[in-house]
Structures are given as C-alpha cells and as structure tokens.
C-alpha cells in the first residue's frame, strides 16, 4: 500500500488481529503445552498455564508403549510413495498439456478435476471388497495407490499452472539443438520448474499425510499411519491427556513446519488456479 494507515488505527488493527490470531492458534499451543505436563497437571483445576513442572516423559512413554516411530515411518512411506508416483506420472502429463495442447486439453483437465470430486464414501465398498480380493488391505502398496490416484488430479493441475508460465520457446530451442524429449523434460524443463515442482510435492505430502478416510478404513496395523495411531487414542486411552497431546504434537509437527513454507502455493493448489 502506498500510504500508511494512521498510527492509532494501526495500533488498534494490530491488537485486534493478534488477539484473534492467537485465539485461533491457541488449541495447538495448549496441546503442545499439555504434552509437557504430568497427567495430574494436565487434569488440574484451575488449569495450570505456566506453574507446572515441565517434563518430557510423555514423549518417551508414547514411543515405548505404542511404537510411535513405526506409525511415523508408515506416514513417511505412504505420503512419500504417493508423491513420487504422482510426479512420475504427473510431470509428463502436465508437460503434454502445457506445451502440446490439443483442442481437448481443457476438457481433459476439467474431467481430471471432476474425478477428485468423487466422494470417497461412494466408492468405499468396492475398494474395500476389491482390496480384500487382491490382498491389498492394510498394505503399503494398497494405500500408496489410493493416495496417489486421489491426489493425481491436484498434482497435474498444479504442475500444469506452473509449466504454463515457462515460455515454450526455450523448450523448442533445446529441441532444435537436438535434445531428445526425455532430455528436454529432465534437463531443461525440470530445472526451470523446480519451485513449482517443490511446492507441488509439498502440498501433496501434506494432503497424503493428513488423509483420514482411506487410512482409517483400509488399515489395521501393518500399514497404519499416524492418523490411525491418533485415532487409537479415541478411547479409553484418550483419558491420558498428556500422552494424547504428546502423540498429537509428534504427529502434527512435521506437517505444520512444511505447511508454513507452502502457504502461498496452497492457494494455487487448492483452488485450481481460480483464485490468484
């Protein structure tokens, strides 16, 4: 903005915004704080805001009792696997739509989008039955494929909007110099599109990490990620608030950090370019 607001107005606006922002953030803060309390302090009335004995024992208990790292590893395998597959299939598709469009390209893009709008509820039954038949129930490969296909439309869309911003002449020049299609994509397009590809990866990891319909319904133990791990606290272990908080903090922390990096790209990715 060219002109600055008056001082008093600025003070008021800052105060209102910060109070509201803090209120929105407070549940997360309270969760993190509770994770450092003893179970007794976590239940204490009136609530202890600062005057409690800080302890990290909840974190070690969570790991010892429920093998947190196994679930975390599953989350990493599932979101990483789904994202890698997505890039492998999505980058060529996005290249094709951005640089070799046909008159159907727009229709194809919109159709891809519409597959994302299919409610999971509508296909839960066949996927469940199919996975039992195929022996894919509660396996990494089964979950990776679901998460990969579920997010593929978003990946292609995001990559497409980034690729569109790269002038096609550069790719053509490379082609004239005798670069093969493969070299053109890997050595010319990919390096220029690194920021776009990075934010696509980021968003896709976040969405896969937090996905909580398929991961709850299609896993039991072997492939269960953190969403299922936390769900196991719904009862009766939910009574242990400090441990629930510690487990939750561990499950949320990596994505919270990634998410802060990807705020801006989030808008592009989730609105399919409809808001800029």
């Amino acid at each position: 903005m060219a002109r600055r607001a008056t001082f008093s107005r600025r003070v008021t606006m800052t105060a209102i915004t910060w109070v509201l922002a803090f209120a929105i953030f407070f549940p997360i803060l309270w969760m993190i704080q509770t994770s450092f309390k003893s179970e007794l302090d976590a239940f204490a009335l009136p609530p202890k805001f600062f005057n409690f004995h800080w302890t990290t024992e909840n974190y070690s208990v969570v790991q010892d009792r429920s093998d947190y790292f196994r679930f975390a590893l599953n989350s990493i395998i599932l979101s990483g696997g789904a994202t890698l597959l997505g890039l492998l299939v999505g980058i060529p598709a996005a290249w094709s739509m951005a640089f070799a469009p046909t008159k159907n390209t727009k229709q194809v893009l919109l159709w891809m989008l519409s597959t994302k709008m299919m409610p999971a509820t509508g296909v839960l039954i066949p996927i469940y039955v199919l996975y039992q038949w195929l022996g894919w129930f509660d396996t990494h490969i089964g979950l990776i494929i679901i998460l990969f296909l579920g997010n593929l439309p978003i990946m292609i869309w995001m990559l497409y909007t980034y690729f569109k911003e790269i002038p096609g002449e550069i790719l053509e020049a490379a082609r004239m110099d005798g670069a093969t299609r493969w070299k053109e994509i890997v050595y010319v397009l990919a390096p220029m599109a690194v920021p776009g590809i990075a934010s696509t990866v980021l968003l896709n990891v976040i969405l896969s990490w937090n996905e909580a319909f398929w991961t709850l319904n299609l896993t039991t133990t072997t492939a269960a990620p953190l969403t299922a791990f936390i769900a196991s606290y719904s009862s009766p272990e939910g009574l242990f608030w400090a441990k629930l908080s510690a487990a939750s903090t561990l499950a949320v922390a990596p994505i919270l950090i990634l998410g802060w990096f990807s705020q801006k790209q989030l808008v592009r990715g989730l609105t399919f370019g409809a808001v800029k």
Partner: peptide, 20 residues
C-alpha cells in the same frame, strides 16, 4: 498462527478439542 489449524490432521484436532 491463523493458517496453522489447517495443517493439523483431522483425528488430532477432533481429539484435542473433545478432551482438552
């Protein structure tokens, strides 16, 4: 601070709200 809740997985936010 405002954007943070969006990144919290559904099972976590539900249980934290329900209990704490």
């Amino acid at each position: 601070m405002v954007i943070a809740p969006f990144f919290v997985m559904a099972t976590v936010s539900a249980l934290i709200w329900k209990n704490l």
